[in-house]
Design a protein around this nucleic acid. Structure first.
Lengths: 194, 194
DNA sequence: GTCTATAATTCGATAGAC
DNA sequence: GTCTATCGAATTATAGAC
């Protein structure tokens, strides 16, 4: 490994980052099939051959664009009665907050018709969602509870951000918190539902 | 209109129905982009040109394949406290019952990356889901309540039938009814959530 | 009514000049 | 490092023989 590769931010790195940014935008807007390498190149103001040169294939480009870290909070540290509200507030930050990226949009839009995206989304569930829920209850129940939470939150994301169902788009943040928060609270903490 | 067209079930009609059945199966499994006219023709054991001859275009074929009637029950006729359970039971019939078709799978799988499918799904919501909810409460709230119900049910369908999230797939019908039913009940009948 | 042949695009990916 | 040119495959859709 040369000093250049280790220390400097080369023009290559900037070009690569530029391509990746364009890819994330287009994969989020149109999904895997709908976003062609030619489209990505045009958005990055570069030749299509360069996209392949930097990422080898469309599949590898998508894999790089579809990396997601939800940064879910440790639920053990908060009041047990506030878990539902905590989760739905974090949901709104992930999808609409100032630091929100297109990661989940990319995964969710493509997961319905692309096996790799579906597998990546299942991995996000298994490695990031389920453990957080498992930490605040019987681990034997964690999968079911985390699955129910995910069904509600992925459904809300789908209806509000992808399908754009008018009444769901119209919901204010406060309405979402007051309506969906208690449903999540119940899925995570209710005792007699197994 | 000749007598043939009006009365007889011609070979044309059977071929047409055969093509449509193959199309519904493949659109449900792979989505709009993933199911080619050639695939549909192969599944129907017929020439690709025949598919175009009978349906003019892939778009028209998809439009025919994506017709959905949920047959939702009249909620006014049942006990108000049983609305949530009634809805989730109907949900399971639509997706897994003996008379269930691939209609909703076709729409849901393609709606994330196909504008026509998304619009059709919004139409199903506006014409079939929202009116049913509006009949059992303040019509001014109907959109929001129906939207919340749809976010939960479409999310559950997505996780269980398309994404196949293992813990959600593993849920028994009874578990789904006991877990999700009350959440729907609350979305439809709770008073102070506007 | 069915099929062959093919037109017209679009796609991902490669080779090679500069 | 960047671009031109192009390959090979796949797609929707059409024209026309039989």
């Amino acid at each position: 490994m040369t000093q250049n590769q280790a220390k400097k931010i080369s023009k290559s790195d900037r070009t690569r980052a530029h391509i990746l940014e364009a890819a994330r935008l287009l994969f989020a807007e149109r999904g895997y099939d709908g976003a062609s390498i030619r489209d990505v190149a045009a958005h990055a103001s570069i030749d299509p051959a360069m996209v392949i040169r930097y990422f080898r294939s469309k599949d590898e480009l998508f894999a790089r664009a579809a990396i997601v870290d939800l940064h879910l909070p440790e639920l053990r540290m908060i009041d047990r009665a506030a878990i539902g509200e905590t989760l739905i507030r974090r949901f709104l930050e992930i999808w609409e907050g100032p630091a929100s990226g297109p990661g989940m949009t990319i995964l969710l839009r493509s997961a319905m018709s692309n096996d790799y995206a579906a597998e990546k989304l299942r991995e996000v569930f298994a490695s990031q969602v389920r453990p957080v829920v498992a930490a605040v209850g019987d681990p034997a129940d964690a999968g079911r509870r985390a699955g129910l939470v995910s069904s509600q939150l992925l459904g809300l994301a789908m209806c509000r951000y992808l399908l754009r169902l008018p009444p769901v788009v119209a919901l204010s943040h406060d309405e979402i918190i007051r309506n969906v928060g208690p449903a999540l609270q119940r899925y995570v903490t209710e005792e007699d539902l197994s």
